[in-house]
């Protein structure tokens, strides 16, 4: 492993992502089966930001996405897995990313309407939040995922948006952040989901941007890295979870950009490609994606811009 802190090793990272589906002999590979469709989204998005959208086959990508779709319209993590909102949003995002949303209407009977109905049915009519699947666990991650996918499908009118907004409001905490449910501790990733959902619903005026920006910028540590909660270790995935809501509320300049850039670059493996949670750790596609997305938010030269929502 070789670490370098000055430039993004674009070519190495592209090769790393391409190599992911050829490592099927690894134990790790089948243990992460439950994340397969998410993994494809992370890899593909990283490639798009790196300017190499062609590095994965478009046809094979589309075929794989559809092989994960279930009877009820939702998508599972992999073929044969039950549908869940987190995989359904990845499926929709992938199709949008490679401009293949019309495949939904072409390949399936009821097309995007069926996917949208699956998502809309996950909303709890009383509280406004969303369950992850038909079994009912709730979390603002699911709410964001459903709202994002419904918005991409242009079907937001199928849900009670006002109720969803009220629920998001109830997740605001005494420290200015947001948690996974009303009363749950503020966490950078949950803040991303709540703020992004409010942005999609056109309700950013409800965000106390000064207190939230203060809390988010407090996540930067002297070494430049960002953490998810006070007194926790830094991790490169927070380069997305913290920077994205800061970008949405227009306070990205409240963190030290140079230090954060240097931190992200120090997490890359310049020899074999990929980025890790911290310098010298093992790389994976999750951290590779969030690190590159964070660099894009910070306008790192040569990268495609990413929408923070």
């Amino acid at each position: 492993m070789s670490i370098s802190g000055s430039h993004l090793a674009v070519q190495r990272h592209v090769e790393y992502i391409q190599s992911l589906d050829t490592q099927q002999d690894d134990l790790e590979y089948w243990l992460t089966e439950h994340l397969r469709l998410n993994g494809l989204y992370w890899g593909l998005t990283a490639l798009h930001i790196l300017g190499h959208p062609e590095a994965l086959s478009r046809e094979e990508t589309i075929d794989f996405v559809f092989s994960c779709q279930r009877e009820n319209g939702g998508f599972g993590a992999a073929p044969g897995h039950d549908a869940h909102v987190l995989y359904t949003v990845s499926a929709v995002q992938i199709l949008v990313e490679i401009d293949a949303l019309e495949e939904l209407d072409r390949r399936t009977n009821e097309g995007r309407g069926k996917v949208a109905r699956y998502l809309a049915n996950l909303q709890d009519k009383q509280t406004g939040t969303f369950a992850g699947d038909e079994w009912g666990e709730v979390d603002t991650r699911f709410l964001y995922a459903a709202i994002n996918a419904l918005s991409l499908l242009d079907c937001l009118s199928m849900i009670d948006q006002q109720k969803a907004v009220e629920y998001l409001q109830a997740c605001t905490n005494f420290d200015g952040g947001y948690g996974a449910s009303p009363g749950a501790e503020s966490h950078s990733a949950q803040i991303f989901t709540c703020v992004a959902a409010l942005a999609i619903l056109g309700k950013l005026d409800l965000v106390d941007t000064e207190r939230l920006g203060c809390w988010l910028s407090e996540r930067q540590l002297p070494n430049g890295g960002l953490n998810g909660r006070p007194e926790k270790l830094e991790d490169v995935c927070y380069s997305w979870w913290v920077l994205s809501p800061l970008a949405v509320i227009g306070k990205l300049d409240w963190i030290d950009r140079e230090k954060q850039l240097a931190y992200i670059l120090s997490c890359q493996d310049t020899e074999k490609g990929g980025l890790a949670d911290r310098p010298n750790d093992m790389v994976d596609v999750f951290h590779t994606h969030f690190a590159i997305a964070g660099l894009s938010l910070l306008s790192y030269p040569g990268l495609e811009p990413i929408d923070p929502v």
Binding site: D21, Q24, W30, E33, R36, D63, F64, P79, G80
Partner: peptide, 18 residues
């Protein structure tokens, strides 16, 4: 048995027992 498409992308490797 698991129904798996022929596509190579993101194909899943299992242990026999699992």
């Amino acid at each position: 048995l698991q129904q798996e498409g022929e596509n190579s992308l993101a194909q899943i490797a299992y242990t026999d027992e699992y």
